[in-house]
C-alpha cells in the first residue's frame, strides 16, 4: 500500500498532462492548470523542511567549531534578518529595510557570482582549445573562425570574409550536431517519463524495487 498509492497517483498525474496536450476543452485545461498550482503548494510545504535542515546543520557547525564556522554565523544572521523584515513587510510589499538589504547585499552578490563566469569561461576555453590532437586542432580553428566572424574587430581584421564561414559553421554542422543531441535527449526523456508513469522506474520513491 505504501508503494501502490504513490504509483497510482503518479500514473494519474503523469497521464493527465499528456491527455490535456491533445484535448483543448476548457474543463480539461483548467484542471491541468490547477495541477501546476498544486505543485507550487507542495513545494511550499517542503520549503520549511529545507529551512529547518539549513538552520540545524549550520547551528551544529557553529557548536562544533567546524572549518568555516564563522560563515555559518553570517548565514544564520542573514537568514533571520531577511526573514524578520520580509515578514514585517506583510503581503502588501517589501519592508524598506528588506528592500535595502536586497538591493545592497543580495543583488550585488548575485551579480558578483555571475560575473565570475567570465573568468571561468576564459580558463575553460584555454583548456578546450589547446591543439593536442587533430580533433582539438579542428575545434580550435572552428572556434577562432566563429569568434572572429561574430565580433566587429574580426570584421575589421578580415574585411568581413570570415562572417559567412562563421554563419555556415553555426547554422550547418553545429546546428546538425545540436539537433541530433536534442532528438536523442527528447526521446530519452519521453522513454523515462513513460517508465515513471507506468511504474517501471521507481527510484524516485526511494527504491528501484517493490
Amino acid at each position: 500500500m505504501r508503494r501502490t498509492i504513490p504509483l497510482i497517483l503518479t500514473f494519474c498525474v503523469g497521464m493527465y498532462p499528456i491527455f490535456a496536450f491533445f484535448v483543448p476543452h476548457r474543463v480539461v485545461t483548467n484542471i491541468n492548470q490547477n495541477l501546476d498550482t498544486y505543485l507550487v503548494i507542495v513545494a511550499a510545504f517542503a520549503l520549511p523542511l529545507g529551512v529547518v535542515n539549513l538552520v540545524m546543520s549550520n547551528i551544529n557547525k557553529i557548536k562544533k567549531k567546524d572549518k568555516g564556522w564563522f560563515y555559518s554565523v553570517v548565514l544564520i544572521a542573514g537568514l533571520c534578518l531577511m526573514a524578520f523584515y520580509g515578514i514585517m513587510g506583510g503581503d502588501q510589499g517589501f519592508h524598506a529595510h528588506f528592500q535595502w538589504m536586497f538591493e545592497n547585499a543580495v543583488s550585488p552578490l548575485q551579480a558578483t557570482m555571475f560575473s565570475l563566469l567570465a573568468f571561468y569561461v576564459a580558463s575553460a576555453a584555454y583548456r578546450a582549445f589547446r591543439a593536442r590532437n587533430v580533433e582539438a586542432t579542428v575545434l580550435l580553428i572552428a572556434a577562432i573562425v566563429v569568434m572572429l566572424g561574430r565580433i566587429p574587430i574580426g570584421d575589421m581584421i578580415t574585411g568581413g570574409r570570415l562572417t559567412p564561414i562563421s554563419e555556415w559553421l553555426m547554422t550547418k554542422p553545429n546546428a546538425a550536431a545540436q539537433r541530433g543531441i536534442i532528438i536523442g535527449a527528447a526521446l530519452g526523456a519521453a522513454s523515462m517519463q513513460i517508465r515513471v508513469i507506468l511504474g517501471i522506474e521507481q527510484t524516485y520513491l526511494g527504491s528501484g524495487k517493490d
Binding site: 575553460a124 578546450a128 536523442g184 526521446l187
Partner: peptide, 19 residues
C-alpha cells in the same frame, strides 16, 4: 562546459539511460 571541465560527461539520452 561539462565536456571541457569534467572527466566524463553523460550527453542527453545517456543520462536517461543511466538507471
Amino acid at each position: 562546459f561539462f565536456v571541457t571541465a569534467c572527466d566524463y560527461t553523460l550527453l542527453g539520452e545517456e543520462l536517461y539511460a543511466a538507471s
